[in-house]
């Protein structure tokens, strides 16, 4: 049980952060369908950064620092990459869905191209990480404590530093969008940009802000995904996590609390697909791997989160309420 919750948390974190990324862009009025692409790009830059840093002896022995710097680089590169979207959507007033799709096609192409050209491989591998004495160390774990209180161990055994940072960012940004001046203005731009402009708010600036925050979060999320979920491998894909995050954002009705619930739910399903054969209950002293014993193919469990997305969206779309002005280029003259 504890194991399941631990794993669920690991899957939840990237979804949570990337869904929040989607929320920030859309609340400012820009549809960010490029989350998946930005994740891929962020993951690639993060992994690249980690590998380059390890060429310096100092960083080889300071694993956590490497991890955190790579995370920051992933966020910055995600933000920069998202400028392609915001520039086309805000300055050039291009169709945002098409712009986002272009980024989604561009990102894996760039990532794979550079991986092949410079590393002659199909993926970048951040783990196993070894210290200067050649001993393999866990990459990214802050705490390893097997003898911990079971409840606390959900959070504090084999915990990644990114989990805490992500949770802190999530709470911080949730507060920001509801309790601050900037948040209020950002939300106004996604609902009624003309109203915002009439009280002197610079709509385009707020939209750049929303998309850039979104890009940073998605890049960060992409890195967290490969570092914690995908065995430290950056390839040209993130298993559609970006789109899953979009679905979570819609499920969560563009609100942080809903997004948190959605991320937890889908994180659980996604995790189930990976660890179903390790789940066991102990009855009469005998361990039973109940899901494994069902003898269903692995693909069945892998499929669950995506089928769930379809079902959940079909049933919740009626009450979902997107920001009214999202996807519409801001035009000063329009009323």
């Amino acid at each position: 049980m504890i194991f399941l919750l631990q794993k669920t948390l690991i899957f939840t974190i990237p979804l949570l952060i990337v869904a929040l990324a989607g929320m920030y862009a859309e609340r400012s009025g820009i549809i960010n369908i490029a989350l998946d692409g930005i994740m891929i790009f962020g993951a690639f830059s993060g992994a690249l950064c980690a590998l380059l840093l390890r060429r310096t002896p100092f960083f080889v022995d300071h694993n956590q620092l490497t991890f955190v710097i790579a995370m920051a680089v992933a966020a910055v590169s995600g933000a920069l990459f998202s400028l392609l979207l915001s520039f086309s959507a805000i300055k050039l007033k291009a169709d945002q869905t098409i712009g986002g799709t272009a980024l989604n096609m561009l990102a894996p192409a760039i990532a794979l191209f550079f991986i092949k050209v410079f590393f002659f491989k199909d993926q970048l591998e951040m783990v196993p990480a070894a210290n200067s004495e050649g001993k393999v160390v866990d990459f990214g774990y802050v705490i390893q404590n097997k003898d911990m209180n079971p409840v606390l161990s959900i959070f504090f055994d084999k915990a990644y530093i990114s989990t805490f940072i992500a949770l802190a960012i999530f709470i911080l940004l949730s507060v920001l969008i509801y309790k601050t001046k900037t948040g209020l203005r950002l939300r106004a731009c996604g609902e009624h940009p003309q109203a915002a402009a009439s009280v002197g708010i610079e709509v385009n600036r707020m939209r750049y802000l929303g998309t850039t925050v979104s890009g940073a979060l998605a890049g960060f999320g992409g890195y967290v995904y490969i570092a914690t979920v995908a065995n430290g491998q950056a390839t040209g894909a993130v298993a559609g996590m970006g789109f899953l995050a979009l679905a979570i954002m819609i499920f969560g009705n563009w609100k942080p609390l809903g997004i948190a619930l959605g991320a937890l739910f889908f994180g659980f399903l996604k995790c189930l697909g990976v660890i179903y054969d390790q789940l066991s209950v102990t009855i009469n002293g005998k361990e039973i791997y109940f899901l494994k014993e069902l003898n269903l193919p692995m693909y069945f469990y892998n499929l669950i989160p995506y089928v769930a997305v379809l079902l959940v969206l079909a049933f919740t779309s009626k009450r979902s309420r997107a920001p009214k002005a999202e996807g519409i280029p801001y035009d000063k003259g329009m009323r």
Binding site: K181, L184, R185, R187, A188, E191, H192, Q194, A195, A196, S198, V199, G200, I201, R321, K324, R335
Partner: peptide
Amino acid sequence: HFKLVDVFTVLDNIILGTE
């Protein structure tokens, strides 16, 4: 055509821009 944000409260609409 009123320049009000539908999903904001009356108070939020009043202060928007000069919070």
